[in-house]
Amino acid sequence: MKAVTHTEIYRPYEGHLRPRPPVERILAWAGIRLSFRKKLPALLLFTPPAIAALVGCVTVHLMFTMSSQAKRLGGARGQVFSEGLKQLLRDVSEAIYRFLQVNQFLALLVIAWYGSALIAEDKRLQANLLYFARPVTPLRYILGKLGTAAFLGTLTLFVPAMLICWQAAFSSPDWSFLKQNSWVIWRVCGYSVIWILVMSTLVVAISSCFSRRALTLVATFALIFLLDGATQVAVEVTGNQNFGLLSPNRNFFEIAEHLFHKPNLGDILLQASGEGMESLAPWNIEGSYWALGLMTLLALSVLWRNVRKMEVIA
């Protein structure tokens, strides 16, 4: 005799449905959980940023430890090292800046890999029919998908950078990193937010244009790297540096240089070539912000159009 552990009867739901459920949060969280389901891609994609963060933390810690030991020596040698603290803090800031530059490539791999599937797979499977048969608006659907991509970007770019900053704060003598270099933390935050927002929007927008993940991946890397190469060629051929504004990577480079108190490429060119070369100088830094802003707006408008079509076919 077969044991019956439940009666397969229909039970009405006696609770209440929320009139406006937090669908963007639910969708984002579902996307994040789904991303970590496949262990191999997660291992391959998240291990390098984790190692980079670890190396960065150890490096910063060693830099400060050496400084502290020198300070403890006292006397003339200690004095020399104490005076060199400012230089050390600059070096730590530079290390964090270098880490961001390297790690943003790893973060791009993560966002591109996971972000490429976010909408393309829904389109391929017509899962949008399930989502939009619920009280999900296109805006909240987009926010949910962007939330997933942004979270993964945060995990690979922002969190490791902040870990290094944290390590620097704890390892620095008398909290000198926090007291004298707190601007680094704010700029890491600012740069990460800009980078994550722009890249997540670009990748998710590209994902909304295709119904195959592989195509989205190809299109993403084509947009980022071929555009980079094409603008480089255009700059070389025409001699007009303003073509560089079309490259997201170039704009991010300029912004990072600016944020971390580095002379931008225009200054370098001016220094190298003298006043007569002013026409080769690139744009003001505002130009990079504008360029990235316009790219993001364009991506958002493409995203909105495509998702609206997924919800209501006019």
Partner: peptide, 12 residues
């Protein structure tokens, strides 16, 4: 709504 298409999200 039960759609006709095979719309179940993979991985879940």
């Amino acid at each position: 709504y039960m759609p006709e298409s095979d719309c179940l999200v993979p991985g879940m």
